[in-house]
Amino acid sequence: MARRRKIGNAIVYLILIVMSIVWLFPFIGLVLQSFRGEYGGMVNYLVPKEFSLVNYQFLFSDSSKFIRWYTNTLIIALFVALLQTLIVICVSYALSRMRFKGRKALMNIWLVLGMFPGFLTMICLYYLLKQLGLTEAGAVPGLILISVASSGMGYYVCKGYFDTIPKSLDEAAILDGATRAQILVKMIIPLSKPIIIYTALVAFMAPWCDYIFASYVAFGNENGYNVAVAMTRWVWTNDYQGYFTRFCAGGILVAIPVTILFMCLQKYYVEGVTGGSVKG
């Protein structure tokens, strides 16, 4: 029995090691490319012939607005994380704890709305934002507004989590004279740390990858770009030859805060997503 388990474990270790290599390989590639000193285009070897910091120096130099783009994205991500979490909590609480007319219909409609191909409506959203003056130079608040405005539909996981908190707690609190608002603030929220962190984390990560709609909204104004819009130009258009290593360096810089945050909060992320997905 012990022998069989040992063999089994050895196989598992082997699989895990192979998987780790496969999973880490692209990141190692990215890191190595970002330190490549010679010629900036694509190459077909992994290890640079010359290690150097030139690509990072370029990003922080005056000839690139990378810092501006990075700050833009960071601002968007922080605000979206904060406001979106707030809205998701509100919606989830209302749908999980309160019973009102039209609740089921609302949930069904929201479920269905998410299935309409989103980019078809981008041009429409662009004009709504333009009317508010939130395009071009105002792209940052504009993008925050759009992300936050529709975030109510992403309540599934959070509501699922709230559903697992026994309702008897609420009833007891109501008997003690607590209002609904007090129950949410004093009882549900403290019990829901994992799901709140999960929601905020997911919201924080999304803006880093928005390249299509964000480029609509910035409409050619470099000051309104986020990192994804700016950096995908480096690989997709002919105007930026030899920017591949810079792209990798920028990618690493983008990945760092998200990765660190993710590592630190992983425990909550797991608890949140597990607790929430019980009910979807």
Binding site: M19, W23, L24, F27, L30, W208, V254, A255, F262, Q266
Partner: peptide, 14 residues
């Protein structure tokens, strides 16, 4: 943690 890296790195890079 190793596996989870793919969630943390933005897709437009990876």
């Amino acid at each position: 943690t190793i596996l989870v890296m793919t969630i943390a790195v933005p897709q437009f890079v990876s």
